[in-house]
């Protein structure tokens, strides 16, 4: 026991005092790698990266520095990476948010598809459609029939306009053909408070923070938005299964490098990331925050990015969201 205490204390102190020894290695990486994140610390995307980075840095024998540069649509972070040295030491945490930004903004200082060299996806995470546990809405069909019977009565809570959650709700509205008011909130806790205080009847938000509310019986998850069920919650149907065929929206995270990064470095990173993602340790930790670990080839990521840009462009146009 005493030994463990000592070890834990020691590891804390080391992390605090950690000096990186610049070992003069020939091969990449010979110095710490920076990953720039377009969000503040603490969100699902940020946590995903931090979990993977911990493993990855052990594999690569180099520190991975997470640099948060929050800005609307993650533009500042993406721009910094697009213009960084393509030497593999500056990487971007890419997400579906970048795909949304490509359609939401009138002009971007970079080309979302061509200015980046995709490396690999890290994980996918679901968005949930949920209501209060004592709500009369049991299924997606209940929601649709209520909205059709009482046009304009239904309030749907999401986070800010143009977020993936907000667009998923817009997509649902459009595909289900219902009339409802989408009430945007600043952050997820506000959405939850609004739902529990009956200001909105249903809400769309990341599955991860909702799970604990669901498990303690406060919230009922009506359905999830991706095209397959979430493995730890096999009883929750997808929206597509519950009467809105073809509906699909999910969020993902990935690593990308500046466009001209040498192929050898991309391949090395891709291999290491896929290896890290296949460990049980990373998988479990990610599942706990609601993320399904899933790597892939750089080409997979490129195709995903292109198809998502197309999908969200359609939703944004249909929902009449003003371009920024």
């Amino acid at each position: 026991m005493r030994r463990r205490t000592f070890l834990i204390t020691f590891s804390i102190v080391t992390i605090l005092l950690c000096f990186t020894t610049y070992a003069a290695e020939q091969n990449y990486p010979t110095k710490p790698i920076r990953v720039i994140v377009g969000f503040g610390p603490g969100g699902v995307a940020d946590l995903t990266l931090r979990i993977v980075a911990q493993k990855l840095s052990a594999q690569l024998g180099q520190q991975i520095l997470v640099e948060n540069r929050p800005s609307a649509g993650g533009i500042v972070a993406a721009d910094a990476v697009a213009k960084a040295q393509p030497d593999g030491y500056t990487l971007l945490l890419m997400s579906n948010g970048n795909a949304v930004s490509a359609s939401l903004f009138k002009s971007l200082p970079y080309d979302t598809v061509n200015d980046f060299a995709p490396v690999s996806t890290l994980g996918f995470f679901d968005i949930a459609m949920f209501a209060k546990a004592d709500s009369k809405f049991q299924t997606v069909k209940d929601v649709i029939s209520y909205a059709k019977a009482n046009p304009g009565k239904l309030n749907i809570g999401t986070i800010n306009v143009g977020s993936t959650q907000n667009l998923s709700a817009e997509l649902f509205k459009g595909m289900a053909g219902i009339e409802a008011t989408i009430v945007p909130y600043k952050n997820s806790p506000d959405v939850l408070v609004a739902l529990r205080g009956n200001d909105v009847q249903i809400a769309f938000d990341m599955l991860a923070p909702i799970i604990s509310q669901y498990k303690s019986g406060v919230v009922r998850i009506i359905a999830i938005t991706s095209n397959r069920r979430f493995s730890p919650l096999p009883d929750i149907p997808t929206i597509a299964e519950s009467g809105v065929p073809g509906y699909q929206a999910s969020s993902w995270n990935a690593i990308a490098a500046p466009a001209k990064t040498p192929k050898a470095i991309i391949d090395r990173l891709n291999k290491e990331i896929n290896m890290a993602l296949s460990t049980q340790e990373v998988k479990t930790k990610l599942l706990e925050i609601g993320v399904t670990a899933q790597g892939g080839t750089p080409e997979d990521l490129k195709n995903l990015l292109i198809s998502d840009i197309k999908k969200w462009r359609g939703v944004i146009e249909r929902a009449n969201i003003p371009k920024q």
Binding site: P41, G42, L47, P189, Q213, K215, S216, G217, E288
Partner: peptide
Amino acid sequence: PMLTLGIPTSPVMALMIGAMVIQGVQPGPS
């Protein structure tokens, strides 16, 4: 609100909830 409802009231608390979740503790009413 964080301890009893599982609702974080600031980014710091969101991080703490994240830390709890990763450790397998589900913050919330229970």
